[in-house]
Every structure is written in structure tokens, then in C-alpha cells.
Computed example of a mutant assay.
Amino acid sequence: MVVAISFSCCMPSLHCPPIIHPFNFNKNKPPTVAAMSNDPVREWILSEGKATQITGISPVGGGCINSATRYDTDAGSFFVKTNRRIGPSMFEGEALGLNAMYETGSIRVPKPYKVGSLPTGGSYIIMEFIEFGASRRNQSALGRKLAEMHKAAKSEKGFGFHVDNTIGSTPQINTWMSDWIEFYAEHRLGYQLKLAREQYGDSTIYERGKRLARNLAPLFKDVVVEPCLLHGDLWSGNITYDKNGEPVILDPACYYGHNEAEFGMSWCAGFGGDFYKAYFEVMPAQPGFEQRRDLYTLYHYLNHYNLFGSGYRSNAMSIIDDYLRMLNV
């Protein structure tokens, strides 16, 4: 049995970031008990978590944004992420996303329990610990259950989310809008293009990208876009399987958006034919799907450019230029 947790963390590479399975702690190491006083994580576990004893605390490696720990107790195990620099708003957004997906009863996600501030600064989130099995890439189940989540969870408020959250460590603006094209142009492409200009002085990608963002309408001809609940950052490191072989998705950047935007990280998610066949049996593909695929990839390439540097610029620029030629604008 392999136990694993994956983190939303992409390394600076032109290729797909590596899949991380960081629960490789030494199982022969004697368990330790938290000795820190005024520890809100320990206090919650021993009260609302219904544990009377913490039998082991094991650090979990592999994250590049947050630290992670497994707490073993007589009431079961808990998974805890901490960040010593960022306040609870980041984890609050994650918890709201996890809970929204959890409540659909479709695909499995870790149930969030508690978000709070650390007394020494920073924040934490406590969630369900899921024991994972040896990787069984059940692409059909993943596609079907993801489509069931998209079909089950819609928003009457339009496109956006209850709070802003993060995509990696980049802010993700989720102010509600009634029009998807406007939302995607402003809060997704526009925000990333603005960051690129501010960080790198990249006026070329900004101007060309904004020109594209103003001319997206032809790509959505005869398309009905409903605000579906999206994981938002679905790459291979955020997809795994439980001990029964059922898919589990982790570390979301949730919002309500066009279901096709969920495939924006497909360049490093490993979605295959079985995945798409099962998905489209539940959520049929709409006209022009293939033409829009790179549009949703662009958002993530821009984010990688802003997070990791110029190695991703050419990918983003190529997509922008291809669409400008296609649309003749």
C-alpha cells in the first residue's frame, strides 16, 4: 500500500511538472507527541477532532508553497497544511472549494475541517486524511466523476466564486460576472497579462494578449456556457486514487466557469481517450470545442510564466499569435 498526497506546485520546466508522492516518511521512526503549547492544530484535534491522544506527527515533504504534516490519533489520522507567511485567506479559499466539491457527492475530495491562524504568524488547514492505493489510472472513472461534478454543481450568481483564491501562489480573481467571455477575458487572461507587464515589463505579450481578449466572441458561436463548479488547477499532481482505485482530486483553485476550462492543464494532466469518452458521455462536447482548447491552456501558461519565468513565455505567445491569425484581428 502506498500512501500519498500531491501538492499544487509546478516546477520551472517546459514540460509537465513531476508527480510528487511525498508520504515517504520513515515508518520505523518512533511516534512523537506535540509538545508545543498554544498550538491551535493540536487543540482542535484534541477537542473538535474528538481525539484523546496524538500518537504520531510525521512531516510530509514535497510541497513548494506550504508545509504538510500527518497527525495520527486514536480517532484516526488528519492531514494538516501550514504556511508561515500567508494569513488564513488562502486556506479559506481552498476549504470553500473543497467543501463545494465534497457536497456534490460525485468525485472524492478530502473533507476540510478547520482553517485558522498560527500564533507565530501564518495559517493552517486541517482536513481529512485519505489513504491512497497503488496508482491505478482509471481514466474512465475520472472523466465520468468529473463530469458528474460539473453537471451537479451550477451557480445562479453567474461566473466566479464566493471568495478570491489562488492558482499556485498567484491571486485568482473571482468577482461574479454574468457573462463568461467577459469574465475570462478580464479575470483570467487580463489579470495574468497585467502581471506579466508589471513583473517583466512585457508590453508585447500584454498588447497582443489584450487584443485577443477583446475578440473572443467568435470562438463561442452557438455555444451555451453554464457556470459549472471547476476544480480549477487539475494537473497530474492534483489527481490520485484511493485504496479502492477511485479517483481523488486535491488542492483546488475552485470557481464557477465554463466546463471546458477544466481541461486547461491537460498538457500535464495525462488525460487520454478513455477520459474524454467517459466525460462527454455525461457532458456532451459543444461546437468548436477543439478550437477553444488552447484558449484555456493559455491561462495556465501565462500563470507559469508569471510564477517561474521566461521558459513558458514562448508557449503563451505562440497560442496568442495563432488565435490572432485565426480570428484575423
Rank of each mutant, 00 (worst) to 15 (best):
P247W: 01
Y296A: 02
C16I: 08
D164L: 00
P287W: 09
L327M: 10
C254K: 09
H258Y: 13
I125N: 00
Q291K: 14
R211T: 10
L298W: 01
I167A: 03
K157D: 07
Y102L: 15
M177D: 15
F220V: 04
F159Y: 07
E92H: 15
V3T: 09
K157W: 03
Q192N: 09
A35I: 14
V41K: 03
F308G: 02
L189V: 06
D233V: 06
S77N: 14
D39N: 09
L302G: 06
N26T: 11
D251S: 12
E262S: 11
I239C: 09
I125G: 00
G116R: 11
I319W: 02
L298T: 01
T55S: 15
A153T: 04
Y299S: 05
N66T: 10
M177N: 15
D164R: 00
Y323R: 01
D321S: 14
A4M: 14
S135T: 14
A34P: 07
P284D: 02
I181R: 10
V282Q: 02
S8G: 14
F308V: 03
Y305G: 02
L46F: 13
S106L: 04
A153Q: 02
Y255Q: 01
S135H: 10
W235Q: 02
T104W: 06
Q192W: 02
R70T: 09
M11Y: 10
